[in-house]
């Protein structure tokens, strides 16, 4: 082509036969999520609320009972007890298995990388739930358990009752959680995402070990801490399998959580009452979450 020739006037044909973008594609991606959310989320919840006001029979006609189920539950002292036990359990569990790992994780990050890897391996040995429960039952055995040996043989204390003590049973149920490091992995991931230059800048600005933790690690972990705390509240309020396997609610009902009591009621065929208790628990947890969300403000600066 020589200079001066007019540019080619023919339109350039599309290479692929002219596909146009279809914005309906977005909906196709969203629909499975919406269906899932509805059938496994909202639908069971609405049905549960409805069933809690009926006799909820497995078979036969449903009879509407108004708030009768709830009245019965309010009159039952064991319900109040189980809520009290659940609150104590949740509070203990959050203090011990939620706060301690934050500091453990921070300390771990300060260790040389090799040592850190070993420590993490120790903490995250994959243990199945049931296996570790049986393991802990052995540890807590009042006659042959290693903890009894430590208490009497090493520390010279009188024999301990462990899981048979009404006073201490909740503590001993929470105790394994400390050693299992709880949500520590989340914290470690969070800590790893903090730019190294923040620590270096802080160090050059004269910050010591504790000041670095207080002014950088903790504030930067805030969103993760907040999220784990929320999950801890929801999770521990619904604790069932671990105490059930360890103590079956004993001794004397001292470790019977709400969900365990619900299971008892269910075993007795009182389906309506059990559903009503589930709804009560849902309302209590929802209230706690709402209070938490109002007190805790999301920080956009993270």
């Amino acid at each position: 082509m020589t200079i001066g020739t007019p540019a080619i006037e023919t339109p350039t044909p599309p290479v692929d036969g002219g596909k146009t973008a279809n914005r309906w594609q977005y909906w196709i991606f969203a629909i499975p999520a919406i269906i899932f959310q509805f059938f496994w989320g909202w639908y069971p919840m609405l049905i549960a609320i409805f069933l809690s006001m009926t006799n909820a029979p497995i078979r036969g006609a449903i009879t509407f009972q108004g708030l009768g189920n709830f009245e019965r539950l309010f009159a039952d002292p064991l319900v109040a007890d189980s809520f009290k036990i659940t609150f104590i359990y949740a509070a203990l569990s959050i203090t011990l298995t939620f706060l301690i790992p934050i500091f453990v994780a921070i300390l771990l990050m300060e260790m040389p990388p090799n040592l850190m890897r070993v420590m993490m391996l120790l903490w995250f040995v994959p243990l199945s739930g049931i296996a570790s429960t049986i393991f802990w039952q052995y540890l807590y055995n009042e006659q042959f358990g290693i903890l009894q040996y430590i208490a009497t043989g090493v520390l010279g204390m009188p024999p301990q009752a462990f899981l048979s003590s009404e006073r201490w049973v909740l503590f001993w149920l929470v105790f394994p959680g400390i050693l299992m490091f709880g949500p520590g992995l989340y914290y470690m991931t969070g800590l790893q995402s903090i730019p190294k230059s923040y620590y270096e800048a802080a160090e050059i600005e004269g910050a010591g070990f504790w000041r670095k933790i207080w002014t950088i690690s903790l504030p930067r972990l805030r969103p993760i801490i907040s999220m784990t705390l929320l999950f801890s509240i929801i999770g521990t309020m619904q604790e069932f399998s671990f105490p059930d396997l360890m103590t079956r609610g004993g001794p004397n009902g001292a470790s019977r959580t709400v969900v365990m009591y619900m299971f008892n009621i269910l075993s007795n065929g009182r389906y309506g009452d059990a559903t009503a208790l589930a709804v009560m628990l849902f309302i209590v947890i929802m209230a706690m979450v709402l209070v938490y969300r109002t007190v805790y403000k999301d920080d956009p600066d993270i």
Binding site: E200, A202, A207, P219, D299
Partner: peptide, 30 residues
Amino acid sequence: KERNVAMVFQDYAVFPHMTVYENIAYGLRS
């Protein structure tokens, strides 16, 4: 922290969770 140097980083290393005032005051407070 004992060398008494000041350093400006490539990514600035300005702490995002602190106000500008607190960022500047950080070294003095430390």
